[in-house]
Each structure stands twice: as C-alpha cells, then as structure tokens.
C-alpha cells in the first residue's frame, strides 16, 4: 500500500493529533459526558487507519507494529478481567466498585468514579488495537498462490 497525494499527507499531518486527542478525551471523561471506552477506542483506531491510508503501510507498521498491537490487545483484556476479579477480595462480588467505595472522591470529578475510569481506559486500548489489527489483516495482507502450489498470506507489495 503506497501513500496518497501531497494534499492528503499535509492535511493528515495537521489533523491526526486532534483525532487522537478527541479519542483520549472521550475515554477519560466517559463517566462524566457521552462517550466511553468503545467510541473513544474506535476514534483512536481511526487516527491510525488515517495514517496508514495517507502515508502507506510501512510508515505505520514501523512505528506501531502488529506485535505491539497484539500485546496491547491481550494485556488490556487481562487488565479488565483483573479489575473484575479484584472485586471478590474487596467488595465481595464480581466487578464490585471497590475503589469508589474506599476513596469516594469528589462528585463529578475525573477520579470520582473509581473502577469505571480504569475499565474505560482498558476497553479503549483494547478496541483501538483490535480495530487497527482488523484493518491491517483485511487490507494489508493478501492471499496468493506460490510457485509450489501452496496458498499463503503475504503483505501485498503494491496497490492495484
């Protein structure tokens, strides 16, 4: 996959940070205003997809490879599960909001909701890396038949 024209590259260079920051904003204020982990994660994945479309696949894969995306995907799923399991020890039930019980915090503040903020961040990272991986799998990899007759999946060399 090659990059696109100079206009697209320039606009992407200006816009990418704002898309990324809007996703982060939606994630960390998900318990105060509309938004949350899922929508914020999708928007963060959008910023990386925009980079891949505009600058080509090498640009993104060299900075944010599929290996990192896999690790982020698995570890954030694990964090969400651990947050739920820790409720057994502290609150007595699965997914008890023990942090909010113990440190109630100020109402309507960023840290006032305990576990919900951590869960939102974990889900956001998970959705972002998952959608980025889906995009890489669907658009960069391609099925070809080799000379020995075995079908295998390669990263496509150039765009039709």
């Amino acid at each position: 996959m090659k990059g696109m024209s100079l206009i697209v590259k320039t606009v992407t260079r200006w816009v990418k940070v704002f898309i990324f920051l809007f996703g982060v904003y939606l994630i960390i204020t998900g318990h105060l205003s509309p938004g949350g982990g899922f929508s914020g994660g999708v928007i963060i994945a959008c910023s990386y997809i925009l980079l891949t479309l505009a600058f080509g696949k090498e640009f993104t894969l060299n900075r944010f490879g599929t290996g990192i995306a896999k690790v982020l995907d698995s570890s954030s799923a694990l964090i969400f599960l651990i947050v739920g399991l820790l409720g057994f020890g502290s609150g007595g039930v699965f997914f008890a909001n023990y942090l909010q019980k113990r440190f109630p915090g100020e109402e309507l503040s960023l840290l006032g909701s305990g576990n919900i903020l951590i869960s939102n961040i974990a889900i956001g990272i998970k959705v972002a890396s998952s959608l980025f991986l889906v995009f890489i799998i669907l658009s960069v990899l391609r099925l070809v038949t080799g000379t020995d007759g075995i079908k295998r999946i390669v990263q496509d060399e150039e765009e039709e």
């Binding site: 318990h31 105060l32 949350g36 909001n97 305990g114 919900i116």
Partner: peptide
C-alpha cells in the same frame, strides 16, 4: 452516588 459516574449509561455498562 453509588458509582460516582454522572453518565448513567457508563455507570450501567461498567458497574
């Protein structure tokens, strides 16, 4: 008051 989340949707789906 029970979850600390002003957004009721988030307080339901994550708590």
């Amino acid at each position: 008051e029970k979850t600390g989340a002003a957004n009721i949707v988030t307080s339901i789906i994550l708590d």
